[in-house]
């Protein structure tokens, strides 16, 4: 038969030498490799106590941003829900009443905004679709839970508190660089 490549090696079933037959040198060689690892620093990160460095543009739990005055940016246009490949986002739009100008930036806002975290695949298409820079993914990870109901994240968990802003500047820089690349 014609050779397919010249990398093939001929197998020789030669008799083993005395050194090979007693196996001790091979065992000692293996042991020395094991022993070497006793003196190397351990690779393990003790997770709940220690954490591993993580990319600052990691796509984790979503945040609904407020503007500089603390008004919600989302206008419930529904583009994120349309863009979502997993259909994890639902919202109900409502009209801003008089006296609520300090709460919502525009005349229309989302009275309920829910993301099903079990459906969500954290692809970031909602963030890309948003024309109002309202929704962003952050580097917070979503916790494991006992029941399904806890995974429907409403506005209470998604909208950032006025006094505890979520920093998304790294993601904005990243998407700006990507667009102008």
């Amino acid at each position: 038969m014609e050779k397919l490549s010249n990398r093939s090696k001929l197998v020789v079933n030669k008799e083993m030498s005395f050194k090979e037959r007693i196996y001790l040198p091979a065992i000692l060689k293996g042991m020395s490799i094991t022993l070497k690892h006793f003196f190397k620093p351990a690779a393990t990160v003790k997770y709940p106590e220690q954490t591993r460095p993580m990319s600052s543009i990691y796509r984790g739990q979503h945040v609904l941003k407020r503007d500089e005055d603390g008004k919600e940016r989302c206008t419930a246009c529904g583009l994120c829900a349309v863009a979502c490949p997993a259909e994890a986002i639902t919202m109900v739009a409502a009209e801003r009443e008089k006296g609520e100008e300090h709460l919502y930036r525009e005349e229309k806002y989302a009275s309920t905004y829910e993301i099903n975290m079990l459906r969500c695949i954290f692809c970031g298409l909602c963030e890309e679709a948003c024309p109002k820079q309202a929704i962003f993914l952050t580097d917070r990870i979503v916790d494991a839970e006992f029941g399904r109901a806890e995974f429907i994240y409403g506005k209470d968990k998604l909208v950032e508190p006025v006094d505890e802003r979520v920093d998304i500047s790294q993601r904005q820089i990243w998407s700006y660089n990507n667009e102008n690349a």
């Binding site: 997770y47 709940p48 954490t51 969500c120 954290f122 692809c123 990870i141 916790d143 494991a144 995974f151």
Partner: peptide, 19 residues
């Protein structure tokens, strides 16, 4: 216990096991 994510990070899986 449910662990969300697509796929979840090993940290999240560990959290699930702790639960």
């Amino acid at each position: 216990v449910y662990v969300p994510g697509c796929p979840p990070r090993p940290e999240q899986i560990i959290e699930g096991v702790i639960k």
